[in-house]
Each structure stands twice: as C-alpha cells, then as structure tokens.
Write a protein that binds this DNA or RNA. Structure first.
Lengths: 136, 136
DNA sequence: ATAAAACCTGTAGTGACTATAGATTCAAGT
DNA sequence: ACTTGAATCTATAGTCACTACAGGTTTTAT
C-alpha cells in the first residue's frame, strides 16, 4: 500500500533527505524534474523515491555527487557491467582507507602531545611547543 | 643565519604554505598584517614565520581555522593555561576518532558489498542492489 | 633601460549542502 | 465559499578552507 504521489515534504520524510537538499539534487540533475501540480508544486512518484534512496545510501557510503552521477549513468543505461561498478566501488573504498590512515596519524600525534601536558596553569605548554615546530 | 625579511614567496617556500593561502590567512586575521615595502609588497619577519609554522602544523593535525584562532588567542594572551589548551586538543582528538569510526563503517560496508560482486558483464549487480536499499 | 619574475587587489569558483526572504498554493475546517 | 495555516515555490547568499584567475604594479637581474 505505497502511495502514488508525494509532495516534496512527504518525499523528504520518507527518505530522510531534507527538502532543500532534494531541490539541490534536482538542480544538479541527479534527480529527474518531477511533474508539477497546476500551482507548480512538485509531485513525486515511486521512481523518484527509489532514486533518492539510492542517492542517500551512496552518500552515506561516502560517494561524491560526481561518483553518484557516474553510478546512475551506468545503472540507467542498462548496458552497464558489474565490472565497472565494482571498480568504482573498490576505488572509492581505497580512498576511504587513505583518509582513515591520515586521520589515524593525526590522532596518534594529538594523543601523544596531549599526554605530555599535565594541564596545569603555567604558561609553557608542551602542546604549544609541539605545534610550534615544523616537521615532515 | 636566518634571514631578517621575507617576501611572500620566500615565506611560502620556507613554510610550505601557498602564497594565496598566506594572503587568505591574513584576511582571516590569523596572521598579522605585515609591514609593506614602499611599493606595497608584504615584508615578513621571524615572528610571521613562527606563527605560520604554528598554523600549518595545526592544520596538519586537523584543527579548523576557528580552533586555531582560539589556540592563538590563548597563546598570545600570555595568561593561557595548559589546561585550556589540553582540553581543546583532547576534544579535537575525540572528533577525529568519530570521523575514523564513521569511515571504518563505510569501508567495511563497501568491502562487503564489493565482495558479493563477481565483476562480470550481466546487468544485475549486487552492489547496485545494496545501494538501492535504505537502511539504518 | 629593459625584460622577467614577483607581487598586488579583487573577484569568482569549489562541494555539498543550508538558510533566508518574500511570495504563492494547497488542504482542512467552518 | 471563505479563511487560515501549513506547505511549497524561486532566487539568492552563506558555510569552510582554500584555489584560481585577470589585469595591473613593483622588484630584480642583466
């Protein structure tokens, strides 16, 4: 018993994507221009709901809008191959691994320098010292 | 044998911060307005070099410009306490940990769904399926 | 004196939204 | 049919931390 037509607010509630973001995706041509009511309000159907779920899920997994655009082109043209999709996904997973590695370096440095600091009142802080030197 | 005065290019080479970024930091009031030559070129001294090192190092550790502004205010007003600085640093380390956790979730999902895909030619991809469903 | 390198200001673009203002339309109740 | 309030509309600007121009001026080296 799924509804046939959604206003933008209903679509937003159904997908968890904010109204402004939905309109933004439309401007970015990630989401088809929906039909309009006589008064000009957007009227969405199941296919928009599906597509917006796809976009949201992909965003949750860290794909950029450009990457999502690529994915959508592949999925739309039904000639896509699993191989292409997998390549994009694996590539994306790699870039996430790099980000994690970078952040872990930051974290360990931060923990190391804060461990050196006793947190007292005197104005000669080992953290400030550590930040003051240029390295790497 | 450190130089007394640097043009913006020399400062850039010395710190690894791009010229445009140095000017941007000046507009953001992270870096003091330096004295100018007669013709209007910026002329930096040791204190600018030190401060720019500090900013760069802090950026490398993931502090936002606002956080760096706070750090600088504490360091400048010589009344800062180690405790304040440490609190900011520990807080920042926590937010980095959160980012890492998020990215790790993304990564494991991506690896899981790409493992399901054999990468062949038929157009029914388990990755696409996984992206099509809304969860969490 | 000239040419090239360095520098100047101001503005606009990036990504992925988010926020606001001010107007219009829709749905529900009387 | 009318009124009210919620929902929606467009257009524009703001966020963060830069980055990239364009078109001009100054400095430095020959």
């Amino acid at each position: 018993m799924t509804k046939e037509h959604y206003g933008i607010g209903a679509l937003s509630r159904a997908t968890g994507v904010k109204i402004e973001t939905i309109r933004y995706y439309e401007r970015q041509e990630l989401l088809d221009n929906p039909p309009r009511t006589e008064g000009g309000h957007r009227s969405y159907g199941q296919e928009h709901l599906k597509r917006l779920f796809f976009i949201r899920r992909s965003r949750q997994l860290g794909f950029s809008l450009d990457e999502i655009r690529e994915l959508l082109v592949m999925v739309d043209g039904d000639s896509y191959t699993c191989g292409q999709i997998k390549a994009l996904t694996v590539e994306h997973a790699k870039s996430i691994r790099e980000k994690i590695t970078d952040l872990e370096k930051m974290e360990s440095t931060l923990l190391r320098i804060s461990a050196q600091c006793k947190g007292g009142k005197f104005p000669d802080c080992p953290i400030v010292d550590a930040l003051s030197y240029f390295q790497r």
